[in-house]
Simulated scan of single mutants.
Amino acid sequence: MSLGPLMIGLSGTSLEDREREWLASPLVGGVILFARNFSGRRQLERLVEEIQAIRSPPLLVGVDQEGGRVQRFGRPFSRLPPARAFGRLYDEHPSMAERSTQTVAWLMAAELRAVGVDLSFAPVVDLDSGVADVIGDRALHASHEVVSRLALRVNAGLRDAGMVATAKHFPTHAGARSDSHNALAVDHRDHEALCDDLVPYRRLINAGLHSIMVGHVIFPELDPLPASLSPWWIETQLRGELRYSGAVISDDMGMAGASVAGGLVERVRKSLDAGCDLVLVCNELDQIPALLAKLDGYVNPSGQLRLMRLRGADSPSWDELRASSAWQEARAVLDVMN
């Protein structure tokens, strides 16, 4: 069975019977985990094993483990600094910042791979414009050049740990004051004014980026729809202008920023029609049965191939990782950052 176009949330720390039924559907391609799904490392390992035992090939398992205020798994996972810490270090010691960024990215990914998690949706490549509070210290820097350099280091660190990077939130959330989680987010800039925001994507795509998350921001000077629902942004700009050939993942379709398309089913269908390969449905769990029924028969063969490339590579066990000199050296770097 191939991977389907939905990545869904779960309610707790183990699978419910209804969730097992959902995950067996060919429309589901993965699971996104949150703090509500985590009570400890061994519990998490069991949950991931449960998820991956349902299907062959196994479903993808993802999480937002950026660091700072967006880190879903706590101890014994390493506590990671916000992305802005690396940008500030760059202002004082550029070469040290680049090395530290790659090392800490490796550490984050290596710990996740040790418990079977395929993806951490990082890095955030929105510029630190000071406009979007929801981004804030999740951004690496205000300069597109510095963001590009550090994001490439994140990409390299994740790759070394057996994980692909997911750059977000395409094309940018940096110029929208409203938080797309709970309101329509609008950026009134024209295409020329967005050139700097797109530079990190160009650099990462040229480096072989496998995954991009599209945000729900509306750019009314360019298209009336949020980017996550827009064929112009996904097909014309991302696939065409930027020549991107990897997987396109939507941000959570339960967010208010996507509400212009109607209810959840309409939002998901619109996002898929616009060119997304994988659509996130994180919290509206009671609507999953209706969504599966309405999308019955949907197939995107090209998208399925792109999603297969997101699977994490083989990795050491948790105990093997913690005993390694690489992990200990990375923790030493992290201690300096913290």
Rank of each mutant, 00 (worst) to 15 (best):
S11H: 13
M1K: 12
L89N: 07
E192S: 13
S245G: 13
S228P: 09
I54T: 08
P58H: 07
P289R: 10
L89I: 00
L209P: 03
R55V: 10
S211E: 00
A313E: 14
A247G: 10
I249M: 15
T101K: 08
D190A: 07
Q304K: 03
I8F: 12
H173Q: 12
S211A: 14
E266A: 15
D126K: 08
L305F: 00
V61A: 12
D187H: 09
G67F: 01
D190Y: 08
R311I: 02
S25I: 13
K168G: 06
A151Q: 11
N300G: 04
G29H: 03
P81Y: 01
H144E: 15
Q304A: 15
A313V: 00
L285D: 02
Q287G: 13
I234N: 01
L27T: 06
I135C: 07
G74Y: 07
E45F: 07
G157S: 11
V268M: 09
D252V: 13
R239Q: 14
I249V: 15
T101D: 00
A313M: 10
R331E: 13
L242T: 08
Y90D: 05
L204R: 06
G208C: 04
A185G: 09
G136Q: 02
A105F: 01
I218L: 06
R20L: 10
A274G: 09
H191S: 12
P289E: 12
A167I: 04
S143L: 12
A290I: 01
S271V: 01
A139R: 14
E66P: 02
P220E: 04
E192M: 03
V199D: 04
E145S: 06
